[in-house]
Nucleic acid binder design. Structure first.
Lengths: 351, 351
DNA sequence: CTGAAAGCGCTTACAG
DNA sequence: CTGAAAGCGCTTACAG
C-alpha cells in the first residue's frame, strides 16, 4: 500500500485527498489552510502545510474553478500584440497575476472580423475568466463592451474614452500631461508648434489635443490651425506630416506628436531632410516606448505608467471577485512622468 | 417549471443537462455530438446541434478539463514580451489556438529569478496546460527544460539550439539564410564585410555566423577576423559596433548584423556620422521585424516565418494530445525569405 | 447507435 | 475549531 502510494505520488501529482490522509485531517481542513481561511488551529495549519510541501501538492485549477466561484483566469484583450503599448500592459498584467495566483489568457480581437462578438462570447463562455482587461482602442468598442456585459464578465478598461468611464477603469491624465509637455516647449521659447493628432477613433487623441490647446491658451498663444495635422499613431503618418511641414515656407520650430511612433517618424524625416534636431526642430512624443530612448537624439516624451496601470487593473479584478459585487464603478488615475531628453531645445532663431 | 427553466437559461449559461433534456437525449449523446465523435444518427446530431444553438450552449472548460484528459490551454513562455520576435510568435499562436478551440496563457520567465523553476513548476501543476511553447532564449535553458520535463508537460521549442533539437521543435534554416544573404552582398561586389554577432548564449548567433563563413569560403574570400564584432541582439550593441567600425582607417563596405535591432543601430549610427547608406555602407539585418520596413532606407533582411512557426507549434501540441503519445520527437523546418530592400547596394568604390 | 453510472478534484453550504 | 455530504459540469469506461 505504502509503496504504491509513494510511486503514485511520484508519477501523478498529489491530490487534496492524499494531503488530507497523510496529515490526518479532512479535505475541508486542507482546503481551509490552502485558502488562508481563519479558524484553523496553528499546529494543524503547520502540519497541513508541511505535508503539502512534502507531496509537492498544487491545487488543480480546473477543479477549483468548477467547484468554486472563481476561475483564477484573467483575460487580456488587444488589437495588436506588436504595439509597444500592449507589450507594456501585458508585462504588468502577467507579473501581478502571478503574484495573485492568477493566470493571464491573451486574445487578440480583430475589429474587422464580422463575427467578432461571437468570438468573444465563445471565449468568455468557455473560459469564464474572473475578469477581463481591455486595451485601447477596443476598450471603446461598443460591440465588444456589449458582448462582455452580456456575458456578465467583470472588466477593467485601460485608458478608455468618455463612455468607458462609466465602467471600472484605470488611466492617466492625458490632458494634463499634454499640457505640461506643451508648457515645456513654450517655456523653451517655441511659438510655432505643430501638433500631430492621433487616430480619430481613439479617445487619447482628443485628450492630448485638448491639453495642447489649453497650454497654448494659458500662454495667450493662438493655435495656428494649419499646424494641426491628422495622424493615426503609426510611424508613417509621422513621416508624412513631417514631410509636409518641413517643406513649408515657414516650418514650425517644434512638433508635438501624439505618440512616440509618430514622433519617431517625424525625427527620421527631419534627419533625412537634413533638418537638425533639436536645434532646428524640437520634437516631443508621448508614451515613452522602448524606441523613444533608443532614438538619436533620444525623445522627450511622457512616460505612461503602463506597467502599474496593468497591475492596478489586475488588482481591481482580483479584489472584485473576493469582495462584494455590484459596487459602483471605480476609476483609478495613475501618475505620469514627463521625460526630458535630447530632442528638445530652444529654437535656433525666433520668427 | 418551463418559465423557471427559461429564466434560468437567460441568467445562467446553459449546461449539458439542459441541452440533453430539451433534445430528448442523454448527456452522453450531447457530449458525443459536440466532440464530433462518430456513431450518432444524423438526425439526432442535427437536433442536438439545433438545441445547443438555441440555448447558446458552450461547454465549460473547467468541467471538460477536470473530467477529461485535456485542458485546452497552451502556455507561451517568453523572456520579454516587448521583443518583436515574441509578439510575432504570440500573434500566430493566439490565432491558431482559437481555430483549434484552445486558449493561450502567457507567462514571462525572468531567467535571473532564483526560484524560476519553482515558479514554472507552480504554473504547470496548477494550470496543467496541454502543451507549452518556448521561445528563445529560454528554449535553451536547461533549468527550464528540466522543470517542464519533470512536470511531464509536452512542449515545442521555437528555434532551439543543438540540445533542444532532441525535443519537438519548429525552426527555420538560419545557416542557409545567413549564407544566402551573404551571397547577396558578395554578389553586389562587397569584399570587406563586417559581421555583427548576436548574444553568445543564443543558438541563432552561431548558426548565422556559420552561414556567413560558409558563403565567404564558397567565394574564396578570407574572413577578416577583425571585422567580426560581438553584439548582443540589442540596438545599442549595433550602435557601438558601428561607431567602432566606421572610425577605422579602412571601414567595411557592408555590415551584416545578426538581427534587425542591431542593424537598425548600425543604420542610425551611420546616418549620425554622415555615412551614406547604402552607397557608402550596405547594411543587412535578420528577422524582418516591423521596424525593418519602417527604417529609412528600409532594411534588407531575412524574414523569419514567426507566425507560421507559432501556428505549427500549436498544431504539434494539439495533435499530440489527440494522437498516441510517446512518439519520436519531431522537428519542422519552415521556409524563410530574403527580403531585399534599400539598405543594400554595390559598394561605391572598390578598395 | 445510445445511455446509466462513476468519477475527475476541488469548494460550498451546513452541522456540530 | 473541524468534518461529512453534496455538487460543480463535464468525460471516461462500460454495457447494451
Amino acid at each position: 500500500m505504502a509503496g504504491i502510494a509513494v510511486s503514485r505520488s511520484l508519477a501523478l501529482p498529489a491530490t487534496i485527498v492524499q494531503v488530507a490522509e497523510r496529515a490526518g485531517v479532512s479535505i475541508k481542513t486542507v482546503s481551509r489552510v490552502l485558502n488562508k481561511e481563519s479558524n484553523v488551529r496553528p499546529d494543524t495549519r503547520e502540519r497541513v502545510l508541511r505535508v503539502a510541501q512534502e507531496l509537492n501538492y498544487r491545487p488543480k485549477l480546473s477543479a477549483r474553478s468548477l467547484a468554486g466561484a472563481r476561475s483564477f483566469l484573467i483575460g487580456l484583450l488587444y488589437y495588436d500584440p506588436s504595439a509597444a503599448y500592449v507589450a507594456g500592459v501585458q508585462r504588468g498584467a502577467t507579473l501581478r497575476c502571478r503574484e495573485s495566483g492568477y493566470h493571464l489568457v491573451v486574445e487578440s480581437i480583430a475589429s474587422v472580423a464580422h463575427d467578432m462578438s461571437s468570438q468573444l462570447d465563445h471565449m468568455l463562455a468557455a473560459l469564464r475568466p474572473d475578469g477581463i482587461i481591455l486595451t485601447p482602442p477596443i476598450c471603446d468598442d461598443a460591440e465588444v463592451l456589449a458582448a462582455i456585459e452580456a456575458a456578465g464578465t467583470p472588466c477593467v478598461l485601460i485608458s478608455p474614452g468618455h463612455r468607458g468611464r462609466a465602467l471600472p477603469h484605470v488611466c492617466m491624465d492625458d490632458v494634463h500631461a499634454a499640457e505640461e509637455v506643451t508648457h515645456l516647449l513654450i517655456g523653451l521659447g517655441h511659438r510655432r508648434i505643430a501638433f500631430l493628432k492621433g487616430a480619430p477613433e481613439q479617445a487619447a487623441s482628443a485628450w492630448r489635443l485638448r491639453g495642447f490647446r489649453r497650454a497654448m491658451k494659458a500662454h495667450g498663444l493662438e493655435v495656428d490651425e494649419s499646424l494641426l495635422l491628422q495622424g493615426d499613431f503609426f510611424f508613417q503618418s509621422g513621416e508624412r506630416a513631417a514631410t509636409e511641414l518641413l517643406r513649408r515656407r515657414r516650418p514650425p520650430s517644434a512638433v508635438f506628436a501624439s505618440n512616440d511612433d509618430m514622433a519617431l517618424g517625424v525625427l527620421a524625416t527631419a534627419q533625412r531632410l537634413g533638418v537638425q534636431v533639436p536645434h532646428e526642430l524640437s520634437i516631443v512624443g508621448f508614451d515613452d516606448s522602448p524606441a523613444a530612448s533608443l532614438a538619436w537624439p533620444a525623445l522627450t516624451t511622457v512616460r505612461q505608467p503602463l506597467f502599474d496601470m496593468a497591475a492596478a487593473a489586475v488588482d481591481m479584478l482580483v479584489d472584485r471577485t473576493s469582495e462584494a459585487d455590484g459596487r459602483a464603478a471605480v476609476g483609478r488615475v495613475l501618475p505620469y512622468e514627463v521625460v526630458v531628453r535630447a530632442s528638445t531645445a530652444a529654437p535656433q532663431r525666433k520668427k
